[in-house]
Design a protein around this nucleic acid. Structure first.
Lengths: 129, 129
DNA sequence: ATATCTGTTATATTATATATATAACAGATA
DNA sequence: TATCTGTTATATATATAATATAACAGATAT
């Protein structure tokens, strides 16, 4: 799977990594049980530090997206993705909220915002072809 | 207008301020031309530093949400909100994207995501009553 | 006029977050 | 036995966030 970094971005590298791996899973590029590169290999490939990759993996592990086995390596959670529970919904609501508020502030209708969101959903899903 | 801060949050104080003011405008609590507290008064009321408020105001000014007059004070932009241009759409797409990817990753359908977004839109808009 | 209120700018300090650099440990594998 | 895992521990450099004082210059009220 191809990972691209913007080292000049204000978004931390470990966050960029985390987001792209999640997007890869969501799109289907990465399937349940698929192996991810070792922290050292990925860091080397990307020209960044081992600990930066490790931080991204740690976050993904904490959320249940991947499993990390001491000596086997890193894999996308073979048991599937974590459930859509209350905690998750509250988290994404907190993340969505300020963006939607800004849309509302500029006069976008509920339908316009909804349409943009649907377009992004489709764009993510179809990018793998 | 009531502003609440979570000093323990990982979200910077100036970002919390910015977001809440934008939400206030979007909801209609703050109307075009309405005065905002001076940097010193608001900082004092919230128990934070003047520069933290000033940073929030500077961001809001840069985006065209408020106007700052040297001696008159701070007001919500009387000419209305900035337009929904290409730059704005690209910005919110970049912000929406990782959240939507995570929804997709957990198996939420396009309609489920869209529904949540609509609910948040309504929630923001109706909170002022 | 003078005191007070604006936003603004400058400087310094502290704390935290981000990213890197080395090194070592312990289990698994070739 | 050498090599590959993730993990942990330190140390360092840089950037960001937040605070603390201080001063400036224009406007306003007394």
């Amino acid at each position: 799977m191809l990972l691209k970094l913007d080292l000049q971005s204000e978004i931390p590298i470990y966050t960029q990594l985390r987001n792209q791996i999640i997007e890869g899973i969501g799109r289907g590029d990465l399937k349940y049980g698929d192996a991810l590169p070792s922290v050292r290999n990925l860091a080397s490939d990307l020209g960044i530090n081992l600990h930066t990759v490790n931080k991204a993996y740690t976050l993904l592990k904490q959320d249940g997206y991947i499993q990390v086995h001491r000596q086997k390596g890193v894999v996308v959670n073979p048991e599937g993705m974590p459930p859509i529970d209350e905690d998750f919904l509250n988290k994404i609501k907190d993340e969505f909220r300020p963006i939607i508020a800004e849309c509302l502030c500029r006069g976008m209708s509920k339908e316009e915002v909804s349409l943009i969101v649907k377009q992004i959903y489709t764009m993510i899903k179809e990018k793998g072809r």
